[in-house]
Each structure stands twice: as structure tokens, then as C-alpha cells.
Design a protein around this nucleic acid. Structure first.
Lengths: 247, 247
DNA sequence: GCCCGTCGTTGCGCCAGCGCAAAGAGACAG
DNA sequence: CTGTCTCTTTGCGCTGGCGCAACGACGGGC
């Protein structure tokens, strides 16, 4: 962990200025924010913070990605979401609670900015615009979780997997020939933990879709070949035809 | 709907002063807040606001209760939560989104205070303490929904029903002889919509628990006789003995 | 180039929970 | 008191998805 050097400042200012939490904040305030941050390069396979521990740091990803998980009583892992560059983690812990409600796993080489809980609360108090942004941020997240809660309560597994893939396409999709690659390591187990099912079921569903030409999958890799096909599955519409996805 | 009269002011000030959103706010600000509210008596079986409609009003319950539901694609209803006196609804809609993410059904005779979206946003801007309270409120709600998401993803039906009952006991429990009554009309269908299952399964589970003396249930009525028994079920512990609940 | 560890696939058996139908039980109106 | 409406119970059959086991495939390290 190191104090942020002046050379990095401009890039960080841009990153934060474009983030949901700090967007619209005056440049000078942003400079203050950056000045009070600590930068960290996370090692892979080590948690940046851990569920149940006292909430000490607020976190924004600079490069790389975090995976936020919760643990069930029986040890089953649930993936809440992924956090990409410019996005925040541990908002809950710092704004409301005393402990982290989730564990954050960093992808190899992930760089993060960290602010102590006290710093963050002081910033919120000093800059009302920041508090409003935070309110919007947390609200949006609440909306999304409620949505997923409803899905989990009312929809079948295949439908939920389709939705999860569509979300990942939006979040980490990269156009490649023949479709959209979900540009991150994504195991069957990951998809299962996102959708409340098992890796076996995910494997079966993906195999089925592969045989229908909707996706193409390999080890920790998924390419969506016919997004409309997934949308049809997610919305429970009559299956689309192979020609439907021409763009 | 009527402007708030001066006679009601004191009670309303107390109610709001004790609420999570307005707690700690100076008395004079609170007076301003009350002055800008409209009071409404909701008819039963009519929605106070409806999922998907433009978000127009922020809402705090004075007396009675709201039931917040979301609709699935196939028409299945999911209950997000109940809103009691002093609690807020439509926070999301007003703080972040353009439309209500849920429908609010009022119990018969429920009285609510309403503020227009614009008023609410003006209040937030004018009083930073309010924004911080709102942030805390929404954060707490997010924490709870994430928790329930995890439960839905990892736990069995009986376990989830046990948790739902325990939450309701905390929220609307009233001590009666032989146990704690959940003091509101609560159908099997309601419990099913809270836990992502069907009324049949809820009925079977409750029957089983009734035969074990853990609960006692009637039409839209549940009395928890041995809370520890439910806790054991919720935490997946070895079943407690009938004597365990002596207090 | 080989080995080993991790990830993915697939067949098989099983069971938790669903869906329906038919009947029972309160509650409320008239 | 009676009829009706809604809520609840329970039996029965079914199936979506789970859990395991065995095997296969890929990839990184040495």
C-alpha cells in the first residue's frame, strides 16, 4: 500500500470524475479525495476485505475486478456481483454497518483506491453532493438486488442463467468474431453461485444452448453467439430463430 | 388527501422525529418537513403506488401498514417487505429511479404522509443531515435484501419460512398467552410470496410445525409458541426440545 | 513432454417441492 | 341460520433440479 504519487493524479482524477460516486464533484474536491486515498495492488486469491470483519476501508477499483461473495451457513458461496474499474465496493459497510456484509476477491493484478471509514464519512459530511451521489449509488444497487431477488423467487434456473449471462455481456462484453465474449474468467461454479443453482445444472444448460448455437463455451470462457436467443429465454418468449441475431 | 392541520402536528413531529429518516433532525426543520407533507387515508385493496408508474410521491406510514410487492413476468407476486408506522416507502423511486420498483398495498385504514418527489429532493439538498439519514436507511435496506437473496439462493423452503416468521415476530410480534402472535393478517399465500414458494408448501410446513408444537396457526393468523424451535430450524441446528422456550 | 491440478461433462438415481383437485373450515352478509 | 366467499388442508402424481461418481479435457509448471 502506498500514498498516491503526483504522476498518477491525472488518471485517477479522470477515473473518479467519471465514477458514479464522484461524478459532478468539483475538480478541487476531487483532488482532496484523491489526496486522502491509499492505493493498493491486490494479490490474487487474497480477499481485499472479508465478510464479518469490522468495516475499515471503502474501496474503488482502478484496474482489474473484484468478486463480491457471501457465505451461507453450510459454506455455499453466493456471488453478489462483480466490481469493475471506477466502481465502488464496501459502500454498505462504510455508510451504514459495522462489518463488511460480503467478501471481496480480487482478480490478479487488481489495483484499488482505499479510504478509511472515518475519511469517507468526513468527506460525505463535508460535501453534500457526495452524499447525494452515494444515495443514488446505493439506491441503484438496492433496485438491482430486489430485481434479482424477484427473479430467484419466481423464475426457473435456465431463465436466471440467461439473465446472468446478459448482465455479464453488458458489464464485460467484448465483441469477437461470431458473438460477444464475456471478457473475464467465468467458471460454471461462478455462474451457479450467481444464479442460485449448482455447477452441474449450469453445465447441462450451457451444453444444451451450445447445441442450439446460442452460446459457445470453453474452460472459464463463454461467448454469446445469439444474444436475442438469450433474451427470449430470459423473457420466457417463444424461442427465436437462428437468423434473428443478424446485426 | 388533505393538508396537515396544526392539531396533528405534535404527534406527527414525534413520529417523524423517531423515524430512521428524520431522526436527529432539528425540530424546526422537522416542522418544515411536516408543513410540506400531505396526509392521505388509504382505502383497503387499493394501491398507494404501483410498480412501473412514474415515481411521484415519497411516503411515510403514520398508522397501519403497507405491503410492498413486485410482479413477476408470469404474474407471480413477490412480497419485498411490510412497512409499518414511522417507516418509509418509495425511497428508491424518489432518490434514484424514475418509476416505482414495487407496488404498495395498504391495510384498511392506513394513514400515510406523502411528499412530492421534487419536495423530497429539495429537502435532501437543503438539509445534508437528511441525506445522510437517507443513505443509512437505503444502505440498511440493501443489506437486508442481500441477506434474503443469499437465503433464497442457499437455503431450503422450511428454513426460509422459519426466518420469515422470525422477522415478522420482530416486526409485528405481540405477546399473548402461550406464545407470540404475529399481529397482522398473514395468509399462507403471503408467506409463500415472502419466501419464494407456494401456499401449498407453506401450509404443509406449518401443519408439520403445529404438530410439533412450534407454532399455532389459523386463518391468516400465526402464533409462534416456541421461538427457539424456529431459530433452530432457521440456523439448521439440531431440533430444540419442547422445554427450551421457557422464559 | 509429461504430470498434476483444476475445470467441465454426462449418466443415473433420487427427492424436495410443485401443481392440481377435492374437500373442509371460518368469516361475513343478509 | 344460511349461503357464499375466501382461505386452508391434504392426498396424489409428477418433475425440475440436485448430488454423486466417473470420466474427459485443458493448461500451467517443471
Amino acid at each position: 500500500m502506498a500514498a498516491v504519487g503526483p504522476s498518477a493524479d491525472v488518471q485517477l482524477l479522470d477515473l473518479l470524475g467519471a465514477s458514479q460516486l464522484f461524478h459532478g464533484v468539483e475538480r478541487e474536491v476531487l483532488a482532496e479525495v484523491v489526496a486522502r486515498a491509499r492505493e493498493q495492488r491486490a494479490e490474487a486469491d487474497r480477499a481485499v476485505f472479508t465478510e464479518g470483519e469490522p468495516a475499515a476501508w471503502f474501496c474503488v477499483v482502478v484496474t482489474g475486478r473484484l468478486k463480491l461473495t457471501q457465505l451461507g451457513l453450510d459454506g455455499t458461496e453466493v456471488i453478489l456481483r462483480f466490481v469493475g474499474p471506477g466502481e465502488a465496493a464496501a459502500a454498505l459497510a462504510v455508510f451504514e454497518g459495522a462489518v463488511y456484509p460480503a467478501t471481496a476477491w480480487a482478480e490478479r493484478g487488481t489495483r484499488t483506491l482505499l479510504w478509511s471509514r472515518e475519511t469517507m464519512q468526513a468527506l460525505l459530511r463535508a460535501h453534500p453532493a457526495l452524499a447525494l451521489n452515494a444515495l443514488e449509488l446505493v439506491s441503484g444497487r438496492l433496485r438491482e438486488v430486489q430485481e434479482r431477488f424477484r427473479e430467484l423467487a419466481t423464475e426457473r434456473v435456465a431463465q436466471r442463467i440467461a439473465r446472468a449471462l446478459l448482465r455479464l455481456v453488458r458489464q464485460a462484453g467484448r465483441k469477437v468474431e461470431g458473438g460477444v465474449l464475456i471478457d473475464m474468467p467465468l467458471s460454471r461454479q461462478d455462474l451457479a453461485a450467481m444464479t442460485g443453482t449448482t455447477l452441474f445444472t449450469v453445465s447441462r444448460v450451457l451444453s444444451e444452448w451450445e447445441s442450439q448455437g446460442i452460446v459457445e463455451s470453453a474452460r472459464e470462457r463463454v461467448v454469446v453467439k445469439r444474444p436475442h436467443g438469450l433474451v427470449a429465454l430470459a423473457e420466457d418468449l417463444p424461442p427465436s430463430q437462428p437468423g434473428d441475431d443478424r446485426q
